[in-house]
Structures are given as structure tokens and as C-alpha cells.
Design a protein around this nucleic acid. Structure first.
Lengths: 123, 123
DNA sequence: TAGACATTGACGCTGCGTTAACGTTT
DNA sequence: TAAACGTTAACGCAGCGTCAATGTCT
């Protein structure tokens, strides 16, 4: 169990961001100390990895929350429930592919922009 | 000379966004009608193209404003002034290359994320 | 004159950063 | 006890979206 400061160091995000994630229900610490200090576990760090990958792709906190929800629900689910969560997950996989495509377009945008500036430079 | 609505259609951004760009000095319409309607020219659309390419790369409105400023200052400048603007432009070209690299990293992030979800799907 | 189109102004939203005033841990 | 670390609450900011009340264009 580590306090928020250590978790911030290891995750690379600020303490305030972690507080915010807690407030909106995106990433809740596994426990609290007697005095109310947030206590995080290694497992919390694991869950954070999902956030770390999704955020740069432009997903909202709410969407990340939902993905974590599905992933959590999937471990331990069986039968119909399992199928249901799987199809929810498929939706997110689709969304991720769409984002990937968008990001690739942005690389092309960057190239166009750089070309535009270089042209202006020597005009 | 076209009104804001037509400019919005042709540029693909909302009327409110254009108003906001005007307010912050990013993209000012070339004129106003007697009654105060914003009037945009084809040249304004040209300038907008810079914005269109920069925005997906995550540049702030202020940075875009500065790039437009440099590009404008460069056309018609000579001698020392020209060299000065060129070096400012070089800074932005560098920044654009950095963004390009970042965006490429995001593609890798997307792949990792998709892989992570697919793994969870069949676990 | 009507209808489409525009105006300013204000408040709402996300995802945090930034104090401020104060309590906890060691 | 002090120093380091944490707490909630509240306001600030970018970049718009979304009314609302009103004026302009054709």
C-alpha cells in the first residue's frame, strides 16, 4: 500500500490528477488510512496502465472508466454475462481502431504543415 | 465577401468557433457589413488552412496566432527583418517535427491498447 | 414584411493546475 | 515536536457548445 505521492511518482501523473480521477470514479484507491490518506496498491497501478494508453488517444475520462468497468467485469464472468461484456469490449476495440486511423491522419497533417512552413520559409 | 455562415460551411468549423477565433484574435474577418455582420474573404479561407493543419497537432490558439503572424510578416519583409522572421519560423518548424514524433508515438500507444483489449477479450 | 441569418452576452462543460486553510504520519 | 505528506474546498483556464434576447439582410 502506497500513499498518493508515491503513486504519482510511479505513474507519472500529478497528485491532483489522481485526486480528480478518484473524484470522478475513474481510478479509486484500494483503501484509506485511519486519517483518510488514499492508499494505492500495485493492482491499482496495473489498472492505471489502461488509462495511460487510452488518454493519448483522446478518450474521455468517462470512456476510460467504462473500459475499466468492462475489463473488471470480464474477469470472473461466465456464460451470457461473459458474452455481453465481450461485445461491449468489441465496441471499444472498434473505437480504438478508429482513433488509430485518426492519429495516422494527424501524421499526414503534420507533414503537410511542415511542408507548408518550409515552402513559406524560402518563398 | 461571405458571411460567417458560408465561411463555417466551407471551413468545416462552427459559427461559434469562428466567433471565438475572432474574439481571441486568431482569425479576424477582413471586414464587417454596415449592420455589423462579419465578412470573410477567400484569403481568410487561405489563412484558415494553417489553423486546420495545426489544430489536430495540439497547438494552442495562441501558437497558431503566432504562426499566422510570422507567415504574414514574412511576405513583404526584406533584409534583417526577413532573417528574423525566418528564425521564428524555424522554431515552429522544429515544434511541428516534435509534434509529429509525438503523434507517431500515439500510433504505437493505440497498437498497445488494442493488443491489450484483444488479449483481455480472449483471456 | 417575413424568414433566414447574424449579433453580443452569459452560463456550462472537460480535465485538470493552483492556491488556501488545515489535518496526518513518522 | 517538526518536517513531510496528505486532506477538502474553491477558483482559474482553454476551447469551445449551448441557449437567450435582439438586430440585420434580402
Amino acid at each position: 500500500m502506497m500513499q498518493i505521492g508515491k503513486f504519482a511518482d510511479r505513474s507519472g501523473v500529478s497528485i491532483h490528477t489522481l485526486r480528480h480521477y478518484d473524484d470522478v470514479g475513474l481510478l479509486r484507491p484500494s483503501g484509506r488510512s485511519e486519517g483518510g490518506f488514499r492508499l494505492y496498491t500495485e493492482e491499482d497501478l496495473e489498472r492505471f496502465l489502461v488509462i495511460r494508453r487510452m488518454k493519448p488517444l483522446g478518450f474521455s475520462l468517462e470512456e476510460m472508466r467504462q473500459v475499466l468497468e468492462v475489463v473488471d467485469a470480464l474477469t470472473g464472468a461466465t456464460g451470457t454475462e461473459r458474452e455481453e461484456q465481450r461485445s461491449r469490449l468489441d465496441g471499444f476495440i472498434e473505437a480504438a481502431r478508429a482513433r488509430r486511423a485518426k492519429v495516422l491522419e494527424q501524421v499526414a497533417m503534420a507533414d503537410e504543415f511542415i511542408g507548408l512552413l518550409e515552402e513559406r520559409r524560402s518563398s
